[in-house]
Amino acid sequence: MLARMSDATARWKGLVLDAADTDVAMGFWGPVLGLTGEHTGGPDGVMRGGASERTVWVNAVPEPKTVKNRVHLDLVADDIDAYVRLGARVAPGYAAAQEWSVLQDPEGNEFCVFPPGPARPSAIVVDSPRPEEIAAWWADVLGAEASAAPDGTRRWLTHVDGLPWDTWKFVGVDDPKVVKNRWHWDVTAPALEPLLERGASVVRAQDDEIRWHVLADPDGNEFCVFLP
């Protein structure tokens, strides 16, 4: 039985990656995601493909990656060789030969590769100490379905309007969130108040420097909201 769908209060807009070197990030993730990268002025960049939802913004940040990503991408591919040639490496502590491979991009961001199949991105993945609850929260916000993962828990989102990948997965972890996520997502919304009423919090309000609002979900995951 499918989870109940609600009226959406927001819609997926795009993905954002923080990078110490945006040229390196776009040089790796552009070919991996089938997108073309360009600078938007200064060091920041954007990677685009066919549909607008496949846009990935790359923001230059001064801080390096210091801890395991709480947000990462899952890819499907027959092997990891193409990613290694682009500069990826097997993540320390993970064997290359297992059900899936855990790799790191040139700046250390983890991602998973699942065989077999033609190379493509398949999911966005978020670590959470309460994956079913936060999956239900985002399902309510986006009008999506909280579907059963292989373990039977409803922590995978499907039918996410605008999401350019198959699934949005929430995975249970014990470690707390300690730094800003290197990957985050943008949404569009007709108003900010319904998100706040559902439990989101304001990290940074729109001001003279930014034309969007930065919020955090109940797990502390940052996301940007673009209003009309």
Results as ranks from 00 to 15, higher is better:
residue 93 G to I: 13
residue 63 E to L: 11
residue 219 D to Y: 00
residue 42 G to N: 08
residue 224 C to S: 11
residue 163 L to F: 12
residue 43 P to T: 09
residue 154 R to M: 12
residue 13 K to C: 12
residue 122 S to Q: 12
residue 161 D to T: 14
residue 36 T to G: 10
residue 97 A to E: 15
residue 175 D to K: 12
residue 72 H to I: 05
residue 108 G to L: 07
residue 8 A to H: 01
residue 85 R to I: 06
residue 223 F to R: 04
residue 193 E to P: 03
residue 63 E to C: 02
residue 225 V to L: 07
residue 171 V to N: 01
residue 18 D to S: 08
residue 152 G to P: 09
residue 63 E to S: 11
residue 67 V to L: 10
residue 215 L to D: 10
residue 126 V to Y: 02
residue 91 A to W: 02
residue 184 H to C: 00
residue 22 T to Q: 01
residue 45 G to P: 01
residue 9 T to F: 15
residue 145 E to F: 10
residue 46 V to H: 04
residue 116 P to W: 00
residue 144 A to W: 11
residue 94 Y to Q: 06
residue 32 V to E: 10
residue 73 L to Q: 05
residue 159 H to V: 10
residue 36 T to A: 15
residue 148 A to I: 03
residue 11 R to E: 12
residue 152 G to F: 10
residue 91 A to C: 14
residue 50 G to H: 08
residue 105 D to F: 05
residue 33 L to H: 08
residue 95 A to Y: 04
residue 195 L to W: 04
residue 89 R to V: 09
residue 12 W to K: 07
residue 224 C to F: 11
residue 126 V to F: 07
residue 184 H to D: 04
residue 188 T to H: 12
residue 62 P to F: 01
residue 214 V to C: 15
residue 182 R to D: 02
residue 76 V to H: 01
residue 66 T to Y: 02
residue 161 D to S: 14
residue 188 T to S: 13
residue 94 Y to I: 06
residue 132 E to H: 10
residue 121 P to R: 07
residue 220 G to W: 09
residue 58 V to R: 00
residue 93 G to R: 08
residue 63 E to D: 15
residue 196 L to N: 02
residue 13 K to V: 10
residue 74 D to G: 09
residue 64 P to I: 01
residue 118 P to S: 15
residue 31 P to Q: 13
residue 1 M to S: 11
residue 124 I to S: 08
residue 44 D to V: 04
residue 95 A to E: 14
residue 127 D to E: 12
residue 11 R to L: 14
